[in-house]
Design a protein around this nucleic acid. Structure first.
Length: 103
DNA sequence: GCACTGACCGGTC
DNA sequence: AGACCGGCCAGTG
């Protein structure tokens, strides 16, 4: 596991229940604002899937995006109280500030 | 070390 | 508003 992955996963872990964060924001928090893709790669390859709420990570537009796991992110989000409409969430409502959850 | 891939983003058409 | 295109970055063969 590289430093970037660790950081990205660590941040993802801290996303509060019922909230979501964008890949771009996580990338920013990880140290590379443009590395949104890399964040996705890290989450896809990571083995800590069980301890990481990767389903709380959505795209900048609010679209849920893809998911390597079995269940679907959309369903999990709805189960946590995050309204998902047409495969997307209301960022204005559920997006959380990573700056505040990072120490 | 090069080249391809991918859970992406932003700007244009 | 919706679709398209190129460019990001890190990981893997």
């Amino acid at each position: 596991m590289t430093n970037f992955s660790e950081h990205a996963l660590e941040v993802t872990k801290r996303i509060p229940k019922g909230k979501v964060a964008t890949y771009a924001d996580i990338a920013k928090a990880a140290g590379s604002p443009k590395a949104a893709r890399a964040v996705g790669s890290a989450l896809r390859k990571n083995k800590n899937l069980i301890i990481i709420p990767c389903h709380r990570v959505v795209r900048s537009d609010g679209f849920v995006g893809c998911y390597s796991g079995k269940g679907d992110k959309t369903g999990l989000l709805v189960a946590e109280g995050v309204a998902v409409v047409n495969g997307r969430v209301e960022l204005a409502r559920y997006k959380c500030r990573l700056e505040q959850i990072i120490d």
